[in-house]
Structure formats: C-alpha cells, structure tokens
C-alpha cells in the first residue's frame, strides 16, 4: 500500500493535472466571488444580500461551489485517465492488487482535492473579506465562522475528489464519467433535493456545498430549496461514507474487469 500510494502521489507531482485543475477551481471561485461581491445587496437577479450582513458574507464565502465540482472531476480524471492514456496496464503490472491501487488513488485524489480546495477557499475568503473591508463594513461573521466555512470547502473538496476517484473507476470511459459527475452535481442533486428535501442534505455535492457555507438562499450554484444543512461533523461523515461506498462499489465491479 505504501508503494502504491507513493507512486500515485508521485504521478500527481510529475504532471500538470493538479495545477491545472486548481487553477480552474480558483478561476471559477474568483469569477463567482467577484460577481457576487460586486452585486451584493443590490437586490437584482440572483444578487446575494449585502456583505455587511452575516448571510451576504457567508454566501460570498461559499463561492467555492464550482471548485467543489472541479475537485470531484479531479478525482475522476486521476482514475479514468489511466484507461484513457492506457497507463493502467503498467499500473496493474506494478501493483496487481487492484483494490489497493484504487485505495491509493482515492487517498492521492483526496490530497490533490485538499490542495485545490485550499486554493479555492483562500480565494473566496480573500474576495469576501476584501470587498467587505473595502466598503468599510465590519466583518459580520466571527473569525472561527469564516475559518469553518473555508475548512468546509477544503474538506468537501478532499472528500469529493476521493469520491470522484471511485466514480472514475466505476465508469472507466473518461468523458462519460465527467458528464455523469457534472450532471449529478448540477442537475440530479437539485432535482432530487428539491423533490425530497429530507434526502437532499445527504447528497454528496449538496452536503459539501453546505459545509462550505452555501445555502438555498443565495450563492452559485445554489443548493436545492428547502434543504437544511447537516451538522458539520455529520456532513463530513456522510461525505466520507459516500467516498468509501463509491470506491467499494468500484472495487466489487469494474475494478475487477479485464484490462485489455
């Protein structure tokens, strides 16, 4: 396991994948964060409340929503990329224990998700706090509350990346896996969460977004209306359980398939 993990971490350090996906996460967070900050309190369209309010500041801090999705996609690419680039053959020759390889990849993906989530959280925090300060507003949230939302974005990114690694093993065809994860995050969870609100908070993307401060009152992308956030530790436990469940499902099915 140690050798497999060492190899997977080295793989991530020797390509531009993590840097590129982190850049994308930061760019999307910056775009949403700045747009929200500029329009905050105007009451126009999907504008969030004023940054002088706790709700407005929290919504702005939660501009990491798309970064969470990017983290999940990072995990998908880490595993499905092995089949797209035909590197899976050497990986499984070096480490025939396929479940062990999957576990190593999930851990490596979580580490990569931590990096991209940290960068995104730093971006959203900088924008929210910076805009509030530039307008002369006192911070409407305490430092621990701000740190909690930033931490939520980091933890959410890490666990969604791990779940993405499982999804990329479950659906080896990379394009299909990416479409499935995007559709799940942006469409299916919204529909399911809005339809069965009691279930919504247990869905991975919704749970991670709410961990990062997203609410159904504002921010982009929005969580389903009527869904209430899980307690912080419960949301982490749910996300971790989902990441493990997806990996186990992959280990019991597609991971055993022939590598042709």
């Amino acid at each position: 396991m140690t050798a497999a993990l060492r190899a997977e971490l080295l793989k991530l350090r020797t390509t531009r994948l993590v840097a590129g996906m982190t850049g994308l996460a930061v760019a999307l967070t910056a775009l949403i964060g700045v747009l929200e900050a500029v329009t905050a309190g105007t009451g126009k369209g999907m504008a969030i409340p004023s940054l002088a309010t706790a709700g407005g500041l929290r919504d702005n801090l939660a501009s990491t929503g798309f970064a969470l999705l990017v983290a999940a996609l990072l995990g998908v690419v880490i595993t499905s990329g092995e089949f797209r680039l035909k590197t899976a053959t050497d990986t499984y020759l070096d480490q025939p224990g396929r479940s062990r390889v999957l576990a190593a990849k999930a851990i490596a993906a979580a580490a990569a998700g931590t990096a991209s989530g940290t960068a995104a959280a730093a971006t959203s925090t900088g924008i929210a706090v910076g805009f509030a300060a530039s307008r002369g507003y006192p911070l409407a949230l305490s430092d621990p509350a701000i740190a909690r939302y930033a931490g939520g974005a980091v933890i959410g990114s890490a666990l969604l990346a791990a779940a993405g690694a499982g999804a990329g093993s479950l659906i080896r065809q990379q394009t299909g896996a990416i479409i499935a994860v995007v559709a799940w995050g942006l469409v299916i969870e919204l529909v399911v969460g809005a339809t069965v609100t009691t279930v919504g908070r247990f869905l991975p993307y919704t749970a991670a977004a709410m961990l990062a401060g997203d609410t159904n009152g504002g921010g982009m992308p929005q969580v389903p209306h009527g869904v209430t956030a899980l307690p912080y530790p419960a949301a982490i436990a749910v996300l971790a359980a989902i990441a493990v469940a997806v990996a186990v499902a992959a280990a019991l099915t597609t991971v055993r398939h022939d590598v042709t």
Partner: peptide, 18 residues
C-alpha cells in the same frame, strides 16, 4: 502507455516508486 505530460525520467521514477 505513457502520460504525455510526464518526462521520461519521471515516468521511470514512478515505476521505481511502484
């Protein structure tokens, strides 16, 4: 079966680690 963005030496380093 190589990652196109990884150098020759890095590819072999990964194989050594594994």
């Amino acid at each position: 079966g190589f990652h196109p963005g990884r150098t020759v030496a890095d590819h072999l380093r990964v194989r050594c680690a594994a």
